[in-house]
């Protein structure tokens, strides 16, 4: 591949790579961090990366918002001039799910803290083994 080919590849795909990096940061936080709150934050970063990825799929070059004017009624709307509304709908609901999971996760973390006086995973495991 020529240099121009590589530059075109980067320009066409770099936003996906940014989301992949974000997703990996979130996943790594969920796997490697010992603190439950950090794990929850990692989960949120992962969800945000996926939301950004979907929203980025929806874009079309030179297209406008998926809100039509009333003068568009009865006309034929060229779908290349309006961005794809479907990923936006899906992500609207995904944001709500992320809030719901965050709320329940924080409630569980709070319960665990009340019971074991710590949010560090290894200390919790040690206390579970003791009892």
């Amino acid at each position: 591949m020529t240099t121009a080919g590589y530059i075109n590849l980067i320009i066409a795909k770099y936003n996906y790579w940014i989301y992949i990096v974000l997703m990996c940061i979130g996943l790594w936080a969920m796997i490697a961090k010992r603190n439950l709150i950090k794990k929850i934050i990692g989960m949120n970063i992962l969800q945000t990366a996926i939301i950004l990825f979907y929203v980025s799929i929806a874009t079309k070059k030179g297209a406008t918002l998926p809100i039509l004017g009333h003068h568009d009624a009865g006309h034929f709307v060229d779908y290349a001039t309006v961005i794809n509304p479907l990923p936006h709908v899906l992500m609207l609901t995904a944001i709500v799910v992320s809030v719901a999971t965050l709320g329940v996760a924080l409630a569980l973390a709070m319960k665990i803290y009340n019971r074991y006086d710590t949010l560090e995973e290894d200390e919790i495991h040690a206390r579970v083994r003791e009892s």
Binding site: A12, K13, N15, Y16, S56, I57, A58, T59, K60, K61, A63, Y79, A80, N84, L86, P87
Partner: peptide, 9 residues
């Protein structure tokens, strides 16, 4: 990115 003829669109 921004391809109007992508499968999603």
């Amino acid at each position: 990115w921004g391809d109007p003829s992508s499968p999603a669109a």
